[in-house]
Amino acid sequence: MKKMLVLCSCFLFGIVSVLSQETSTNTDLVVLEKDQTPSTLLPQVKIKNLNGSQIGAESLVNELGGPTIVSFWATWCKPCLLELNTLNKLYEQWQKELNVKIIAISYDDARTISKVGPMVKSKSWKFDIYTDENQELARVMGVNMIPHSFIYDASGKLIKQHNSFAPGDEETLYEELKALAGKK
């Protein structure tokens, strides 16, 4: 009897110690404190900005401390242009309200990459634009079809990805971003 009591106590203690470990789930909200450094979002792959300077994708962060959307697009992709045109109209409001940052990475190769800068300028897009000319980053991130967007919370954790855009998707996205930013 005493042996059983000792054994059971040990097992109970072990179970309690395991259960008391902290766990995190996708639904936990993370909001960065003022002095907290934003986390890395993307893998260590070289991409370029519109001036042709090489940037490590791992260096892209959301300095505002809120959720981030990384969207792969191309100048010839109609649904991609619909998505980014729609988000461009809402971007200023989302930045002020939710500290959202949108990073748009062009999937265009040598045939159409020269149109990226002029098209972006003509549409007055306010996002951070980069190019992935040989699709290195897209390949590592498993991008098969575009538009393909990745949504990260403030800590840099990937929450969701989707690869389509239909009118009305921006409303669903807004509700998701509000939840990630801890707003109702």
Partner: peptide, 18 residues
């Protein structure tokens, strides 16, 4: 001796969880 062994097993068991 058996109680002692049981305790050791218990500690090892708890330890292995952690």
């Amino acid at each position: 001796m058996n109680r002692f062994l049981l305790c050791i097993l218990g500690v090892i068991f708890i330890g292995s969880f952690n």
